[in-house]
Structure formats: C-alpha cells, structure tokens
Design a protein around this nucleic acid. Structure first.
Lengths: 354, 354
DNA sequence: GGCAGCATAGTTAACGTTTTCTACGCGGTG
DNA sequence: CACCGCGTAGAAAACGTTAACTATGCTGCC
C-alpha cells in the first residue's frame, strides 16, 4: 500500500481546512483575524483546530513573510548571577511583548560568540543581544563582528551590545553600557579615602573587556591620588569563587603586603573571604575586601560586602526594549548609545586605617 | 520606478547561485556537502557566499524538511542558582551537539507554562524540557499538558519533565527526577538525630510540587521518629531570601519555640541567617539552620550551611541527552524515567542538643 | 566504435503558510 | 430594473530551501 511520505506528522492548515470544509485561506484568516469571516465558518474552523489539536508552523509562517518574533541573546555563562539578572531583564521584556528568546552561551570565547551570532542570523532573529564583556577579541574578530552588525541591520534586525564597549562610531548597533571604569575608580577612591595605600587588585582574564575597564578605573584612581602603582599588586584570574580563593591564598601565603583586596567581582570576593578565614584574618580588621556587581551574595557574606552596584536587570531590560523598538531603522542609522551609572554601596567590609 | 517589494533583504541562495554562475541546487549541495560538486564550482560558490555575506534561511530549510536542531526549555526564573545550574546543563549538552536553545520563563505559573509549551510546539522544537516544580496545577492543566505531550510525541518531538513528577504512566514523556522527598526525610532525620525536636519548616508555596514533596519528606521523618507534628511549625512562603527573612523574623518576634529551622531552599536559609542575626541569635548555638539545594551560596554563609545536595547540572545535562537521543520513538513508546539521588552535606550550621 | 557507467549539473516539485487577485451573491439605490 | 458596493469565499502565487528526477559529457572497456 502506498503510505504517506513522512511517518510523523502534525496536522497542517490544509488538514484543518478540509476538516472544516473551507479553504486554507479561510483558516488562515480565522487565525489572523484580519479579514471578515462568517460566524459559521469561524466556528467550524475553531472547532476543527481544537479537534485536530492544530499548531501553526512558525517556519512556514516566517517564510511567508510574518516576523517570527524571536530575539536572541548570547552570554558567557548562565550561571553567573549578574549575567542571569541581565538575561532575566531581556527575557522578561521580550516575553512581555510576546517574543520568544533564543539563548546561546559563548564561554567568553570570541570565536564561539561569532559563530553564535551567525547562527542567530540564520534563524532570522529580530535582534541579537550580546551580554557582558568578551575576552581575547582580535582585530579580525572585531572586523567580523562589525560585518555581522551591518548584515543584521541590512536585514532589518539589530545587533545590541549590552555591558560591552561599542564597535565603532559608524557601526549600526545599539549599545547599552554601564560605567565600568568609573565604578572601579569610585571604589578605589573609597578605599584610598579610608587610608588604604596597598591594595591588591584581583582582576579577571588579562584581555577581557570588563576586567580591563575595571582595572583601568582602579589605576586611574591610584594615579590621581599619587599612590605608586608598579603592577605587583595586580593578579589576573577568572571571575569565580575558586579563582579568588586561590589567588588570595597564594598572596597571603607569600606574606601579606597589602591592607585591602579589590576583587573584580563579588563572587571573587567570596573566595577572598574564604582564604582570609583560613589564614585567621578577620575582615575588615585585618584585611579589607571589596567587590563589584552587588549581587545578592554581597549581603549574605559576613561582614556584608562593600561593592559597586550595577543595574544588571535594568541593563537587560533596556537592551531588549531598544532592540525591539529600534529595528528597521533608516539604512544610514548608526546606532544608539545608553550609559548607565554605577555607585559604591558601602557596607561593612572596609576598615578605616590610620 | 518599480522597486522591489521588500525593502530590507538578505541575499538568498538564488542570489548566490546567480553570482557564482551556477544553479541553486549546486549552491545547496556545496553547503550540504552531500553530493559531488566540482572543485571549480565549489570555489566559486564559496567565494560568492563570502562576498555576498550569505546566511542560509533556517525557516526555509526547516520547511523543506531539515530538522531545525532547536531544543526548548522552560523554567520559572533564570535567576535562581539551582535553575541556572540545570539550564546550564541543558544548554551545554545541546550546544555540544550543535543545537540551539529556546528559553521561556513561566514565573512558576501553570497557565503561562502551558502557553509556552504550545509556542515551542509551533516552533517545531526538537524537544521541550520543563525544569523545576510547578505551582497550582489544576487537573485541567494536567490534562492539557498530557495532551501536549502526546501531540509533541506524535510530531516526533518529546516532552521532558526535569525535577518534576511524571504526568502518568501512559504519557509519552521522559522524566528526570531527583529524590526530593527522600532528601528532606534524610535532613530532618539528621536534625532529629542531633537532638532537635521542635523544627520550624519554611516551605515554599502551598501547592507547589517541589515544596510539597520536601514538606512530605520532613513530615514522614517526624512521624517515623514519633515526634508530634501539629502543623504549627510549618510556614509557607516563596523560594526567596526575602521570604525566609520575613517568615523567620515573624516567628522569632512571636517568641522562639523551636531549636532548628529547615528552610526549603538555601537562599531561604540565607534569609533566616539574616533574621537570626537581627535577634542576636548565633547559628548554630542559639539556632540551627539547614537548607536544601547545596548551591554555592551554602559555602559562603557563615557558619557554612548544612544542606541537601541536588545534582542540578547533571539533571539538566541528562534531560538534554535523553531529549536528543530518544526522540522519534515508536508510537507506542510510553516514556523513560530516571531518578537521581540526593544526600545531606553536613557543614556547620547544626548544633548537637542535649 | 558503441555503450555502460560515472561524475556533475540543472529542473522542478514539494514543504505550510500568507496574501494578493478574482469571484459570487445580495441588498439598496437611482 | 440595472448596477454599485459590500461581505464573504476560493484560487493561486509567492517565500527560500531541499531532494528526487533528468540531462549531459566523458572515460574506459569489450
């Protein structure tokens, strides 16, 4: 017997039409609701849809020319609290408008990120949001990303940089940033004003944008205060608790030649707390510790952590808003740029010296 | 002048073909690599693709019959550490195989979850993974979810329940669970063995599956030890730090008639720590506290939190594996079921009484 | 020297929608 | 009473791919 070609099939619009005794066009119209359809036809169609348990095929729909309402976002890792907050902002705003979110994780790798953006482009995502800093981005990587931004824009989509520096003035992207450098500057100033002169800075990866910006802010503050900065008080690691623990443990084992630690991230600071405890040091009496991000954890650490507040969720929400609002711009549009501010949240992890 | 219909357009496969001076079929073959193509044609096509910056249209591809390699997962909120861990497991396994992840958040709402599953079905996702418990699920909701599971399965996709009880024996779903009830039983037994008799249980929402299972385990342990359980030592809230703080603060203000608190979640326990501190109570001397989940935070709380370990990331990874491996089953397939075990991690937040 | 068979290439019919175009009946109007 | 317009319906042409057929030179072998 001649069977159907495919074995597993969902009912199609044509099936519904046949079942309801109308044409496919009518079913489509009932679904879209943008064309007059008689009461009786409408009812029959709705009934058939329910009985056949019909689900429209998004792919066919997209091909036929309807926006697919999918937004993409790419971040290093969903497990980081700050990333998760930003992702939540994006997702919330998107779903509030009935959009679906495609997600990809880059592990902070530039090549993988590029590949993901290309994948999202193939999916015809309405916008692609890049969340957080990126590491080891070569000039070539930047050129390719720029090209992707242009392609996306030409296709009526949009590349959005969230928490990351712009690609260039003439690149059609939206960038939603926060003042990373300024936040670090303010924090180091705070430490300095409390009398600290030897501050160990626990940075992230050497060539990671967020890490570099925070380190730059720290250094500028040192310079402005005329505090020597010979680079021996900077350690590079990754943005994890384990890294903060290991790095500070090593330095402590080698002899404590600093009175404060500025961890590039709150979770790194948590690692510092753990190491300090192992050496019998109490925070902040024996060692002051500060972080960056102001995630919930900062309030659970004892003593509560002094840190820099970053409005991650708002950042994500704004990114989604801009992404969804400013697509389909003029061909010569060259971007939008928002800068959020950060501020120091003083809690109890810094002592006053002298 | 007669312009093109659409204003914003990406180059199509036909454009590439024209540019390279070959037929569309040849371009498709070069891309797929499943058919012999001459060296020269191949090169010309690749060159044209690069010059035009071509990106294949996934929708057209999917329509023409190629699996779109998209997996969907739905959870209550990306911000929870345990959810994030599970999501990470899913995403990692998916992307390792070259699949993309669609994500949706339900805020723990059953109706919204149902709507999301339907949306994912319309997207023709290869599998739909539901992560974490669900609240207020009515019998009707369950019936509708069952129907969706069947539709998904009939279409060659699959519904996967991760960290949530099965829908029924004859429903074609994969379920990846951990022993929620047993973990709570073990934890309460531990508290009991340390001499605690009056234990305040801080549960989640009244009709939330995870919360109910944990509470059930707690109660069974109480029963087995012959400890009275009149329900006055159970409070319902939500799985947040704020909820744990408020609930325990209220009870403490009313007079402390318990020696230990079993928080349904580690972050709830963090709230308890905060409240205890406000009342001048030290953990564990004045009050023992335990949690559930064993997220990273448990190690940063002071004293370090005794809790129940749940392998969230592995749960997520396994869900994705099963989802991707066991699609396209026989029509009469009725599911897969995995049960992970939990165990108590003893740290320093419980004192020995008597 | 004819022809089987192989390596390439092009044609064309799907795939499941949406969206023009047409088409048809019918009530009201000049 | 002819005709216009309106409300409703269907036919058919896209949309951008893939894959099943055809088609066309060649190579080499009997």
């Amino acid at each position: 017997m001649p069977g159907k070609r495919k074995t597993t099939n969902s009912p199609t619009l044509a099936d519904v039409a046949a079942h309801a005794g109308v044409s496919p066009a009518t079913v489509s119209r009932v679904l879209a609701g943008n064309y007059p359809v008689s009461r009786s036809a409408n009812q029959r169609v709705m009934r058939s849809i329910r009985e056949l348990n019909y689900a429209a095929n998004t792919h066919a729909r997209a091909l036929a020319g309807v926006q697919s309402k999918t937004i993409a976002f790419i971040l290093a890792d969903v497990r980081g609290q700050s990333f998760a907050d930003a992702a939540h902002g994006v997702e919330q705003e998107a779903s509030r408008r009935g959009w679906l979110s495609l997600i990809g994780t880059s592990q902070g790798d530039s090549a993988r990120e590029l590949a993901l953006v290309q994948l999202m482009r193939e999916q015809r995502a309405g916008a692609v949001i890049l969340i957080g800093g990126i590491a080891n981005e070569s000039a070539d990587d930047r050129a390719r990303m720029t090209e992707l931004a242009r392609s996306l824009h030409a296709a009526g989509s949009l590349l959005v940089l969230c928490g990351r520096p712009a690609l260039g003035d003439d690149v059609p992207t939206a960038v939603i940033e926060y003042d990373n450098e300024q936040g670090a500057y303010a924090m180091t100033s705070h430490l300095l004003s409390q009398g600290h002169r030897r501050i160990l800075f626990l940075a992230g990866p050497e060539r990671q944008s967020t890490s570099m910006q925070r380190l730059a802010g720290h250094r500028r503050a040192l310079r402005d205060y005329g505090v020597p900065d010979d680079g021996t008080l900077v350690e590079h690691g990754v943005f994890t608790r384990a890294s903060g623990y290991q790095l500070s443990k090593n330095r402590l084992a080698a002899g404590q030649d600093f009175t404060a630690v500025f961890a590039a991230t709150d979770v790194v600071a948590a690692g510092v707390y753990a190491a300090a405890a192992e050496f019998g040091l109490t925070v902040p009496d024996d060692l002051s510790v500060v972080g960056y991000d102001d995630v919930e954890l900062a309030q659970d650490l004892r003593p509560r952590l002094t840190t820099v507040h970053v409005p991650y969720e708002e950042l994500g929400r704004t990114a989604a808003q801009i992404a969804l609002d400013t697509r389909h711009q003029q061909p010569d549009w060259t971007g939008d740029h928002r800068l959020f501010t950060t501020h120091v949240v003083v809690r109890s992890s810094v002592s006053r010296l002298g």
